[in-house]
């Protein structure tokens, strides 16, 4: 059943070489694209001890330990694979050269010598949830998360509002200077903000916005992409609908928000997806204008942690996973809309 489904080919019945190559490529691609993320997800559940193990294991395994009477610290448990104690589980006290001094947890008084080659650490699947919980306790994770959410949501709302207003004016009115304004906006598509970093910083600085979320929000809300996308869509809304509302003495503002905006919902959805993606992932500009750690977005906090030698990989990996989780969930739900939107508009 499954095989006939997989081997379905266009008009041909034979499963030939190109089909083998296709499936080989697809499976290799899947491993290459998902594998690294999965590996980091698994690693994020490992304890610090398991993280420093080499070669690493895929699953988060940890050596079991036991409290033995007469010893202060928990001792690691080993399974004996050869010799006279084969099959029993012993706790290790210390290593002396090629031998290990071990003890049976049931008889703590009797010390046993075992060759180190004759024992295997007893390991089991342990999820170190602690990696995640300590993010909330020690790393102020919620602060960064909130900063990112605030910037993303507010910037997206303003972007949609401003861009749709401009798009409405450009699509539904004939006034002198319309073409000039439209061309001016389109021309800025060719001027990426990266070439104006210094003067934009001056403007933001003069407005007193440095080290506030508004320094990240304002400079990029007037996206030419958004205006263009919405204008093209609004051109398809028939003018008769607008004129009918005007007959009923609706003001132009009312025409905009009661008729045009709801009808442009599909295009607005695309813009919302883009805006959320841009803002959640933005890095260089926040790096320049947000210097105080309490203002950091998630991306900045992640970057700061990885540069800080004090932080361990365990916290960093857990934070990486928490940062990619919201986008992953949104993608899993909306993947059709996202890929279709991008394929149609050709922007990212």
């Amino acid at each position: 059943m499954l095989w006939s489904f997989i081997s379905r080919t266009r008009g041909r019945n034979r499963f030939d070489l190109t089909d083998w190559l296709t499936w080989g490529y697809l499976i290799f691609g899947m491993l290459l694209m998902f594998g690294p993320v999965l590996w980091v997800a698994m690693s994020s559940f490992k304890t610090d001890a398991a993280l420093s193990e080499y070669p690493p294991s895929f699953l988060p395994l940890a050596t079991q330990t036991a409290m033995v009477k007469g010893y202060d610290k928990p001792l690691p448990l080993y399974e004996i694979t050869a010799g006279e104690h084969k099959g029993s589980v012993l706790a290790q006290i210390r290593r002396i050269g090629l031998n290990a001094q071990m003890v049976d947890p049931a008889h703590p008084d009797e010390k046993i010598n075992v060759k180190i080659g004759d024992r295997q650490p007893k390991r089991e699947l342990t999820f170190a949830w602690d990696n995640y919980s300590k993010l909330f306790k020690r790393f102020n994770f919620m602060r960064y998360f909130w900063n990112s959410v605030f910037i993303t949501v507010v910037a997206t709302v303003i972007t949609v509002l401003f861009n749709s207003m401009a798009a409405f004016a450009l699509a539904k009115y004939k006034f002198r200077g319309r073409m000039v304004v439209f061309l001016l906006i389109i021309a800025t598509l060719m001027i990426p903000p990266t070439i104006n970093l210094v003067p934009i910083y001056l403007v933001v600085n003069e407005l007193g916005l440095v080290n506030t979320p508004w320094a990240v929000i304002w400079p990029a809300v007037a996206t030419p992409t958004g205006v263009f996308l919405l204008r093209q869509y609004m051109l398809t809304i028939p003018d008769d609908l607008l004129d009918a509302a005007r007959m009923d003495h609706a003001s132009e503002w009312r025409v905009y928000w009661r008729i045009v905006l709801p009808l442009a919902a599909p295009a607005i959805a695309v813009l919302v997806i883009f805006s959320v993606m841009w803002r959640w992932n933005e890095f260089l500009w926040p790096l320049i204008v947000l210097n105080r750690s309490e203002q950091f977005t998630l991306q900045l906090a992640l970057n700061a942690f990885q540069g800080d030698l004090q932080t361990s990989w365990s916290g960093l990996l857990a934070m990486t996973i928490l940062t990619l989780l919201p986008i992953t969930i949104v993608f899993a739900i909306l993947q059709k809309n996202i890929t279709a939107g991008i394929a149609q508009s050709g922007v990212k």
């Binding site: 691609g29 980091v40 991306q299 940062t323 992953t328 996202i338």
Partner: peptide, 16 residues
């Protein structure tokens, strides 16, 4: 599958 990494933030990609 091939599109998924596009959505990840650059910082996350680099750390992975």
């Amino acid at each position: 599958v091939f599109f998924y990494p596009v959505l990840l933030s650059p910082v996350v990609v680099a750390l992975i």
